[in-house]
Amino acid sequence: MTARHVDAEVVPYVLGELASEDRARVETHLAACRPCRETAASFRTVLTELVATRAQPPAVHWSRWQAELRRKLDSRLERSRTPPHEREVAGPRHARLGWHAVPLALSGALAAVLLYLAVHGIGQEPRVPQLVGDPRPADLTLDETIAGRRLDMLRHYSVVERLDLLEDLDVIGNLDRLADVKEGRASAMAEG
């Protein structure tokens, strides 16, 4: 049985980077330890596969590649000689910044939309525009305003329930004034 596994040395062993002394020690261990032996064998197989199936990059036209490199280098050197305030107006750096700014702009737009939704909410009732001199509270919704207007009818329900709607439309239209008329009569009677 072997003292300890040689995990840390399997890779350099397979790559042939161990000194002869260490190599001999690892080999002694591998001879006695099946898991380590299998690890070493499988690593060797994977490396062989990698080498055998190693991909080559697409063919490159080297003279064109080198001419392009020269062009880029010259333009970079030219730019480094140009004062910064003139450099920012145009040129590859500006163009590159524009390209890199696309995700930044998208993120900004997304943040703006989220902020708008957070402030104004999603699917809330529309607010009733507040006109100058309008006595209604400013934060009423449309439904609340309509319900508020119908409260007049509820307050004068005893009158409303006795009306034939087709004949007494103008009474309904002047319900607001009913209270004033009642108050006027009461004060006249009190004075009388």
Binding site: D7, A8, V46
Partner: peptide
């Protein structure tokens, strides 16, 4: 580097 290679080879072995 040896740790990177060890983990890479172990992961590749598993995938294969």
């Amino acid at each position: 580097v040896r740790v990177h290679l060890h983990r890479a080879l172990a992961a590749l072995r598993k995938s294969l």
